[in-house]
Amino acid sequence: MTSPNPLDVREATAARQGSDRAASAMSPVVVEARRLSLVYSTADKPVTALSEVDLTIARGDFVSLIGPSGCGKTTLLRVIADLERPTSGQIAIEGMTPEQARLRRLYGYVFQAPALYPWRTVERNVMLPLEIMGIARAERQARAREQLERVGLVGFERKFPWQLSGGMQQRVSIARALALQPDLLLMDEPFGALDEITRDHLNLHLTQLWRATGKTCVFVTHSIAEAVFLSTRIVVMSPRPGRILDVIDCDSLPRERTLDIRESPEFAAIAHRVREGLKEGHSYDD
């Protein structure tokens, strides 16, 4: 791993200067979902993946979605990304429909699997979204290099994805999403396949990146510790049909996170509340 990056202000300012972004930068709400439901119609019987979800994500928030497997976390992320249409309810991204937001490339999505293209080298995989956006070659290469450095994959640019380990592949896919320099970062268990140490490193990188750039992050995880360490708010979801059980504010933790806050009593208190929420499967009174 490389040492923690002096996360560039250049990127943050560049993002803020985007013309259509400047206008919406006024609005404090990035994602707003009201009574959102989604029913998958499958061959045998319909599956309710999301049921009456209300969620507001403010600019600069780091929101973690946590819940048992199959509870609809990925589905919620996919609805935000306009990869899935809700069955009922409203959702707005930066005041737009998800489709408009997608067409303006407002978000970067890290999928649950790396989804790298095997015929492209690592570097060209990271440059793929930039090619589609029509960014000049030199700039593409510079950005790819920068992001690969961030995830500790310098020296692997010319390798093919299938020559990398699963965790390395996932880091490439993170670099690919970061290269887009989106304001909204949607991440579906990005560190699920990584070992504890690498995971700690990347968590630290991610929280620093988030703090320096003011990105809004929606992050799916199964790890309570990871959720508490990274988040400003934690959304606890119930088993199917996916409902929101609890939204936990992490205001008691400082905005600047270091690995040793994990030893603090505040950290333990929040973690405890998340665990209880998951275990009991019912809501706390706030």
Partner: peptide, 18 residues
């Protein structure tokens, strides 16, 4: 092509030709 590979393209707002 796998669904996830197609979703990736969709998330980049890539059209049919791309």
């Amino acid at each position: 092509s796998e669904r996830i590979q197609l979703d990736l393209m969709r998330s980049y707002a890539a059209g049919y030709g791309r």
